[in-house]
């Protein structure tokens, strides 16, 4: 029997959706392809605005740093690049490391975006991959053939953030894993010493 009362139907649908959301832990605010795309659209919009701002290079790098800190899941990137070495480490030492890493990563990739000055980035596609979303974009720089930049996005941290950046196949997460691993080896596995040196690196 069809429901005649649209308002009643709306109420029912809304109520059952809410119930379903409550019944699925972690699923309540599940990210969609559109939201992942919207996030990167917004991020790319901010990058493009900085590129077009005509500010000094130093000021632009500062702005890129801020954008990076705002949109990236730095906590995950920091701890994941540390790998097994982080397990069982002192919480305060780890916290200090994540803070130092945040500055290092923003400076390093803020500088990397300097190469984008005079160009634009355009989001072209988004699709779910395993438990996250991958948003594709094309960078068009002056005097260069366009190349692909992919962003891996998730909401598992509680916020919609990107946790990996892949420029022409070259993957930030694995590059930083290699880098942090080598730095840690050189310091005999001392995470506190690593954190200290990260403050002036990048």
């Amino acid at each position: 029997m069809p429901l005649r009362n649209p308002s009643r139907r709306t109420v029912l649908v809304t109520a059952s959706a809410a119930a379903a959301a409550l019944a699925m832990p972690g699923g309540a605010f599940a990210l969609t392809t559109d939201q992942a795309r919207a996030l990167i659209d917004k991020l790319v919009g901010e990058i493009n605005a900085v590129i077009a701002s005509g500010k000094s290079e130093g000021a632009m790098i500062k702005d890129f740093e801020k954008i990076f800190a705002k949109y990236a899941d730095v906590n995950f990137i920091a701890l994941s690049t540390l790998g097994p070495a982080g397990r069982g480490a002192n919480k305060a030492v780890l916290g200090d490391y994540v803070t130092a890493f945040r500055g290092y990563l923003s400076r390093k990739y803020g500088k990397r975006f300097r190469e984008f000055i005079g160009g634009t980035i355009e989001v072209t596609n988004a699709k779910p991959v395993k438990s996250y979303y991958e948003v594709s974009s094309v960078a068009r720089l002056r005097g260069q053939a366009p190349f692909d930049v992919r962003w891996q996005v998730s909401d598992k941290s509680g916020r919609n953030l990107f946790f990996n950046l892949i420029i022409e196949g070259v993957n930030m997460l694995s590059a930083e894993r290699t880098e942090i691993g080598a730095m840690l080896d050189k310091r005999g596995g001392d995470i506190a010493a690593l954190a200290r040196d990260l403050r002036s690196a990048g």
Partner: peptide, 15 residues
């Protein structure tokens, strides 16, 4: 980079 060999190998192969 802390280990330029490892970084170069990774970059080359991924690219």
């Amino acid at each position: 980079s802390a280990d330029s060999y490892a970084q170069m190998r990774l970059t080359y192969l991924q690219y």
